[in-house]
């Protein structure tokens, strides 16, 4: 099939950037969105033009680096998947597809579709870890954890830090990401030891690096490729109140 691509091109963080239009023929429905961009880049290189810069690594939905805003949706029109898992089946022959980077003050554009997601790492570094000795695997088995808690902790832990929640949020708030990272520890006994320090440090860092305030609009939950739930944000708020 043939698609028209309107892609955001921007030299670096300081330059202005604009949409460029490309026609791409020979796109097959089996291609992933990234493979489609690969074939565009091959074409551009052959024509002696600068290829489109986009971030990617695992191409299997776990590294969280492939985020881009496609036709008004982070990770494209399909729900519950990342851009690398998005197949061209979701598009029709003759479609115009608009692609631009995540837009947030905390996510400056590096080049074209690549943004700097370091702000999320900074929040993780502030408290998204356990520094107490939790023992060996055998010892963790000896520690009883409620089934519901372990399930919920796992559901929170599958956040891949892609930043789609920030991208989707009208306030560019990172509340869903931070709440998932806080919840995955808050629900387990190993994480309780440093729960207060963690929530204080991570929320402080979240505010400091320039994300907006959550206004409970729910766009994050709707667009999260890992279906991270809004209950995490309520839990983060509770943890925050308990910590002061």
């Amino acid at each position: 099939m043939k698609v028209t691509l309107k892609i955001w091109r921007q030299e670096n963080a300081r330059s202005k950037g604009s949409f460029q239009t490309y026609e791409l023929d020979g796109v097959s429905v089996e291609m992933s969105f990234l493979e489609m961009l690969d074939s565009l880049n091959t074409k551009l290189i052959k024509e002696g033009k600068e290829p489109v810069a986009f971030d990617h690594d695992c191409r299997e939905g776990i590294c969280g680096s492939c985020g881009m805003y496609i036709n008004g949706h982070p990770h494209g029109p399909a729900t519950g998947i990342t851009t690398c898992h998005l197949s061209m089946r979701y598009f029709k022959d003759g479609d115009t597809i608009t692609v631009e980077p995540w837009r947030a003050k905390a996510f400056p554009v590096i080049k074209d579709l690549i943004i700097d997601r370091n702000a999320l790492d900074k929040i993780q570094i502030a408290g998204g870890f356990i520094s107490v000795n939790v023992g060996s695997a055998a010892e963790s088995h000896a520690m009883p954890v409620k089934k519901n808690n372990s399930d919920d902790a796992f559901d929170s832990a599958i956040c891949i830090g892609c930043g789609a929640c920030v991208a989707a949020c009208k306030n560019a708030s990172a509340a869903l990401f931070v709440s998932a990272k806080i919840s995955q520890f808050a629900l387990l006994p190993q994480g309780r030891v440093e729960a207060k320090e963690r929530v204080r440090a991570m929320v402080a860092k979240m505010d400091e690096v320039g994300f907006g305030n959550c206004s409970n609009t729910g766009a994050c939950e709707a667009e999260c490729p890992k279906h991270i739930k809004l209950v995490n944000i309520a839990r983060m708020n509770r943890e925050f109140y308990k910590a002061y």
Partner: peptide, 25 residues
């Protein structure tokens, strides 16, 4: 603060699903 958090808006229209009335608070 929320406006400041997104100095450059989306050019292709913000279509991300949100609870409708929350946008106009």
């Amino acid at each position: 603060q929320n406006w400041i958090a997104r100095p450059v808006g989306y050019r292709s229209g913000e279509k991300a699903e949100t609870s409708f009335f929350s946008k106009f608070m």
